[in-house]
Simulated assay, not measured.
Amino acid sequence: MPEAIKTYVRLVDRFNRVIGRIVMWSIFAMMAVLLWSSISKTFFMPSQWTLEMAQFMMTGYFLLGGAYALQLDSHVRMDLLYGRWTPRTRAIVDAVTVFMLFTYLIFLLIGGVSSTSYALKYGETSYSSWAPYMAPVKIVMVIGIFLTFLQTTSIFFKDLATAIGRPIR
């Protein structure tokens, strides 16, 4: 593999590893929001913002952590035949089937950018009584999808290198 591709793989992997490890700690912030929700419902007036804020935080957690999950190969995979194949056969099949994931991510990215631009242009708010602006969560959504696209490209290059017998370490 050319050195530029190896550098790309290393940079994307390192960046997504850092983002993934930072985002994984946000579970404690979500827990704090939900704990406050329980406390406020029990002892005070219920907070209007807690449930929706937890949903927004979960969206960021899921989408920003998606690239890291791909990197760790911790996503769900049907292992009917895959587990019996050699690493090279797996890499060949993965290098071919990754184009379905590319297509899916491109459509998600196009829709996300369109939705984000609408939210920014018209000041879109949620329909809840709290009515927060939707642009921040949509921006996080687009960033997460983009990082997943970059990680998918990195995985494609690693699979291609393994398929031709020169794995990238």
Rank of each mutant, 00 (worst) to 15 (best):
R88T: 14
F107W: 10
V12E: 06
G123S: 03
V23P: 01
S128D: 06
A69K: 03
S37L: 00
F156M: 09
I145H: 03
I19D: 12
V137G: 08
N16A: 05
F149T: 12
K6S: 14
T152M: 07
R21C: 07
V12F: 03
K121A: 13
R77P: 04
I143W: 01
F102C: 08
Y104V: 08
F107H: 07
I139Q: 12
A29G: 13
V142I: 11
A54N: 10
T7Y: 08
Y118W: 06
Y8F: 15
A135W: 14
K158V: 11
F15H: 02
T97Y: 11
M100K: 05
L81Q: 08
W49T: 06
T42L: 01
M24C: 08
F156E: 05
V9Q: 08
P136V: 04
V137T: 10
V18K: 01
V140D: 02
M30P: 02
S126V: 11
F44Y: 06
V12K: 05
Q55F: 07
L108Y: 05
W36E: 01
S26Y: 12
F156A: 13
F62A: 15
G165N: 06
W130N: 05
F157N: 09
G111P: 03
D94E: 15
L72H: 03
G65M: 09
M1G: 13
L105Q: 03
V18M: 02
A4F: 13
M31K: 01
W36M: 05
G66H: 04
F15T: 13
A67M: 07
Y133C: 04
M134G: 00
K138P: 00
F15N: 06
Y133M: 07
Y61M: 15
P167A: 01
L109H: 06
F156V: 04
N16G: 07
M141R: 10
S128N: 10
L101M: 12
M134D: 02
M30F: 05
